[in-house]
Design a protein around this nucleic acid. Structure first.
Lengths: 206, 206
DNA sequence: TGTACATCAGTGAACGCGCGTTCACTGATGTAC
DNA sequence: TGTACATCAGTGAACGCGCGTTCACTGATGTAC
């Protein structure tokens, strides 16, 4: 399938590109979005960026390094989004925690390919240190909120265990949505309601 | 990487194989288990089964058809397991429903590659009719149990909505486990406890 | 029981293809003077 | 301001490789007589 340049990744005129590194990342994101991270070819990304297939090696060690970079950016973006969500809806409140969950699912829907990289089967990508650190930071944010909620609402629950349950829930929703698996048995499911309801039950005084 | 024949897929002596269809399915399952469904090559499966790369075309239309067959078998197996679980732990009971969830996660852990096929991104595989039917049947089993539980325990909840929440939960647990994503923030998490606890909260009188 | 024969599962070679990476190179850029 | 030059981003051709699928074929099997 021939790949034509999209506006966001079109090269500048002339011999030098200007921001080939950025353009290759943009092209890669676009390609893994449509073909999945496993079926992405570096050669296609080069075609999208309008450069020769040898050009990426001036900016990345190998194909894998581009994916690692995208994965890393993804965790930072996810952290930013969930933090923004909880701040907008109330730090330490039930609504704030639910908003974090919804932000997680929204991220999976909007940045599906990046989400797949971040939580998918390619272990090599996830195991570099910067990625692990950003990932832990995201989760710590959730635990902190749950702990805060438990304290202020005088709940006896273990924040770490509850945060894990909530993460499991929103991650499940994300996966079932992006892989179109709800469609078969619950077309048009209201996912915000599902998450809100389930999270409320998980966070309820037990 | 050279692939050597495993006992379960070794060919019989002689020109004719005997059960090449079965051997190719076994070989494919083995390969997608180690390389993922996206990185499986038909040629490797042939090597494992000890036949030429042209042999599969006497039994399958193309590469995709082998994967569809495995996906189909997977839904049937999952249905069998969840039904067996609920029958062993109490039809229409909370424990029975929790057992179904645990059986779902156990299936994901034991048949990871098949699970990935069944719920993964390859839409073409999931969209054939037999697969859709088996998938719906699996989910209906859960709804029925939840409905039964709601009735006998005089709960007002909507069985369909509650079943969706439970599915979301156990699917999330399955994905996070098989992709090794719990490891970073909760190494050695007790997943049976997590599911039991969360399911109890979701099924609790609201 | 013995033989002729149709069937068809598996062969092995070939096809066209696209991949990731390497290589010596080229020419645009920007700095030193 | 003008010129010489070092830098290094991007080129284009080539590499070795493995893939999915097709093809005419072959020979083991089992059935009809």
């Amino acid at each position: 399938m021939p790949v034509t340049a999209a506006p966001t990744v079109r090269r500048k005129a002339g011999f030098h590109h200007g921001d080939l590194r950025g353009a290759l990342i943009a092209a890669t994101r676009q390609l893994i979005e449509s073909h999945g991270p496993e079926n992405f070819s570096l050669a296609d990304a080069c075609r999208l960026a309008g450069v020769s297939t040898a050009a990426p090696y001036k900016h990345f060690r190998d194909k894998q390094e581009i994916l690692q970079e995208i994965c890393q950016q993804g965790f930072e973006e996810l952290g930013r989004r969930t933090e923004a969500a909880v701040e907008a809806h109330g730090v330490g409140t039930l609504e704030g925690i639910v908003a974090m969950g919804r932000a997680y699912v929204a991220f999976a829907l909007e940045e599906t390919a990046v989400f797949r990289l971040m939580f998918g089967q390619n272990k090599a990508i996830k195991q570099i240190e910067e990625v692990e650190t950003s990932g832990k930071a995201c989760f710590s944010g959730v635990i902190n909120q749950v702990a805060l909620f438990c304290t202020t609402s005088e709940q006896p629950g273990d924040p770490h265990a509850i945060a894990l349950q909530l993460w499991t829930l929103v991650h499940g929703a994300s996966c079932l949505l992006i892989d179109d698996d709800y469609a078969k048995v619950a077309p048009g499911v209201d996912i915000d309601a599902l998450i809100g309801d389930a999270a409320r039950r998980i966070l309820a005084r037990s």
